[in-house]
Amino acid sequence: MVNIDTRGLTYDVQGFTVQDGPGIRTTVFLKGCPLRCLWCHSPESQRFDPQISYMKMRCVGIDECGLCLAPEVCPQAAIKAGEWVDKPAEPGVQIQLPELDRGKCDDCGLCAEKCPTEALFMAGEEWSVDRLVERLLKDKTFFEHSGGGVTISGGEPLSQHDFTLAVLKRLHEEGIHTALDTTGFAKWEVLAESVPYTNLYLYDLKNMDSKQHEQGTGVPNQLILENLEKLGQACADFNRKSIGDYSSAAVAAADPRQVAQIQVRVPVIPNYNDNPANFEVMAKFCQKLQANGALKIIQLLPYHNLGVAKHERILTQGQILEAPNMDDSHVEPLAEILRQAGLPVQLH
């Protein structure tokens, strides 16, 4: 049963996200993830509770403001005067920024409440299903014109499955195309329940070797692979019921809002999963999905280092991979392995 009274925690709701499925989309980023990927480009998505985020660029400096330094604003005394930097857009003018001691901070949020510039802000906003759906429906015109819709992403949205399912169901009833961006690391029952309301799964495949998977993400891959295989079958079953056919051709020809499909997404990480062997195993695995008509495409996402700046912003204590952005030419031979196996592939 879908529980509509549940509440969800997001770290962002963004319009015109162009890389999260077809058409113009608005994406809901839910907070909290059971995985800890080294290359995570949204470190603020990892924890399941609101946390202080700090965007230094916005701060006007403690001389002009300094509100966050008052003792009552930080009972933990985690904020003190810190480095001097050039004022943004006014080179030559120096301002002193506050410094946040992440070890002492307990994310109480008082400083974010006080901070007028939103340099210190809480990553994490609570939504009711109704309020979120109302917000998403504001962008309906754009979805209709572009064959777009809403993507529920994360974090791992299935970690907040009650909320995610309720939102997907409501959007589905409104005739809006829905996509679910998932790591696949969830109970099968939960994933299964989402099938009737989800038109497109953006399903991550990070590494076909379970041990390496665990090294890079903190969890083994058995559950993820099992779920993906079952999901392929479930999508086929759903499509047969919905449009009377489950072949790739029939699914491609149908109204995208009446079918369930899977878009496999592979973040290509340097010296981690960018080896041909990994992609050969992946090709075999995906051929099974293709056979039951559920595979829309395999999308390869070359590593980029945007996460590094965000990492600093959130002051995560964990590690983050810092490497140069990956060139398309590096990914092309890997894509070719998949193409040779007869699979549809897309770069970016």
């Binding site: 015109f16 162009v18 077809p22 058409g23 113009i24 015109t141 754009f142 209709e144 014109h145 572009s146 064959g147 777009g148 770069l347 970016h348």
Partner: peptide, 22 residues
């Protein structure tokens, strides 16, 4: 520029059309 890479081109077209329809 990232928002108009590849498929983004058609999304920008849809964006303009939507605005004009509004």
């Amino acid at each position: 520029p990232k928002s108009v890479e590849g498929e983004g081109l058609h999304k920008l077209e849809a964006l303009i059309k939507s605005y004009m329809d509004l």
